[in-house]
Design a protein around this nucleic acid. Structure first.
Lengths: 216, 216, 216, 216
DNA sequence: TATGAATGAGCTTTCATTCAT
DNA sequence: TATGAATGAAAGCTCATTCAT
């Protein structure tokens, strides 16, 4: 199920590999978010990771491996955060809690999301599918949430819309990261959540925008 | 209004500059969409433009200038396409026609939109604002469209939502370009337009999804 | 007939390519003979050629191309020297003049011969056949010389020996280059020629070692 | 007499050193014959030897030490094979048996001979003399064989030729290894021995090529 | 104005060697 | 004695940019 593309390492000790790659990912994310993948050099990655260029290459084979590891990790972390919410009620409330949760995760992991968002496309034809698969799984989580609402009769949209709505939610989450310049000076994350939820669920029976707005 | 960042050229004849830059942009777009800005070399750009590397540098100063010219041009073209629609009715129908028009433009200019979308972030701090400003102007066109509906009482959303809704529309257009892999094998552009419009305008008084669907 | 493996150059002007490659070959030979191909860096080759590393790579694509050019050139030069002798008499005297001529060429081009001898094996599977073909052609020149003697009845060896004898002559020429340490302090090139010729042609009717020796 | 250049080892147990170096030489020869000394890494040598890179460096000090050990060992083995023949008769027959024996040794140890032949030159100025000395000793074995024939009146060549003839024999043996591409598809080792012996001893009183050929 | 040869800083990657365990 | 993770100098090669023609 969780078929991961293996990145070869000449170091055998798996604990060490795990640890070093953690350092590497942390270092690389902070560089990628500043200057992007292409403008970051492997030496900079090594330095930011706290070891030498030689050591870096003990744990990867090419610079692109770093990008893959970074993207892979970020997707895993975002997904793990999402998985932690256990919403099976099939109510509109559950759905909007799910959306709010996702948006907050995106807000908390802004840098990572931005990197994942902007640099995924730099992955090779070889590595890309693995990452896209993870993205798809995240979208599917929203599909499930939505479908449950539909099945319970809380939401009246057609099956064909579900997939698209799920993608919209996913992209609107990312938007908060990649359109900071247009959004962050206008809304707080809470406002963004509230307004996007309203727009998404407007006109839905049982969704009371006015009520919610009263609270904030 | 149309404050453009000047790209220096050592050639004085403006007609020539215009012509050469057109060639350059055409060549560069086709390269950028294949391999991205960073993986494209200036030599390749020169060759694809039909002149020598020396000549290329008569019309720009740095490689980044090419990117700026490309982004700038694409925004202009997309905006020009959008401007061509003259919708001042303030009806929901006008709005959905506007959306459909925009989505079709995005579909027709897929490659360009993808480039503008993916490479804009590679612009220097210096050039970025000029391009973002153009993007904002496009979003404002949708704001205007929406506001007219609200003013006419066709649409009941608050002022604060207008800006966000406009951005959503804008991003959903781009989505059709940058999430091809997830969308194009599921929807045709017509289906995409129809479904997105439904989701955007669902629950809006006067918007009849069923009716529209019947037409297509 | 003279099918040469093309080495790509990004410079178009063929005269310039020819000139630069001459510089390059001259520089590379002098380095290869000192330290061998593997211990010579591309930067050193560039410097010894009188231009920058960037320029070097305008005229070749990989370091191995330099080796190929060097080997190819040396074979051509040696062969050209050999071709210059016009010996069709089919006499033993012609043969021994031919041998002497070849040995003198080898002596004059000692460094080149040493390089060609020691580094040819470092050529890629791709380039090797082109060079070996040239070597074979040189061996065939001796075969022809020998066969003419046999046909004229001046030499009595079987057809099957001819090829081998030709190879021996060829290798004995190279020996003068690659076994300097063992030969040069014992013989002058003239002595080497004389003695090897004696050994090769000893017992051949009409070959008078004593006579020849008297001359020197 | 057998002055050997010591290769330092931090391991004291001589039996162990001997054993490890045997492993190392075996591994290295097989690598060197495939890819040459320069293209072989120390890690590969360690792996092929059956121990770790750390252990490798307990038994040598530099990569070049491995080359020296390999060359040294090969020379010893070839020489040991040659020493095993006990030919003191001073007859032409003894000499040709000696030659045949040497050629067969070369054939049996083709890979080793090729390595010794091609990589000896990569030895440092420091180590080279030790290896060349061994080579010289092998040549001297042929000199002795030849001189005995001359002294017994079986062979009529001058003292000055003896050294050269011995070298020719030595090089012709190596030829069988380093000119495989030109020889092996034309001759079997037996044919090669026969024909080379004929060429070397042609015209020698008492040498009957025809007779020998009849035997094979 | 157009050309393309020349440049060299700077990139990714390798690998001989060391040394703490 | 054996291990293998760590190191960094140095390699091959690229490419944005310049400038003489």
């Amino acid at each position: 199920m969780d078929k991961r593309r293996e990145v070869q390492s000449s170091v055998k000790d798996e604990r060490l590999v795990e640890m070093r790659r953690n350092q590497m990912i942390r270092g690389a994310v902070s560089l990628f978010k500043q200057k992007g993948f292409h403008r970051t050099t492997t030496r900079e990655i090594a330095r930011a990771s706290g070891f030498s260029i030689g050591t870096l290459y003990e744990y990867i084979r090419t610079k692109e491996d770093v990008l893959y590891l970074v993207c892979d990790r970020i997707y895993d972390e975002v997904r793990a955060q999402l998985n932690s919410m256990d919403l099976n009620g099939g109510t509109i409330s559950d759905l909007s809690i799910g959306i709010a949760h996702y948006f907050k995760v995106v807000d908390a992991m802004q840098d990572e999301v931005l990197v994942m968002y902007q640099e995924t496309k730099s992955l090779s034809k070889d590595a890309l599918p693995y990452v896209l698969k993870k993205e798809l799984e995240m979208v599917q989580m929203f599909e499930t949430l939505i479908r449950q609402c539909v099945e319970k009769g809380e939401l009246h949209i057609e099956e064909k819309q579900i997939h698209l709505l799920a993608q919209n939610i996913f992209v609107q989450g990312q938007m908060w990261g990649f359109r900071r310049w247009a959004l962050h000076h206008t809304y707080t994350i809470e406002q963004y959540i509230e307004r996007q939820t309203e727009l998404l669920l407007i006109g839905i029976k049982g969704y009371k925008a006015a009520e919610k707005k009263g609270e904030s």
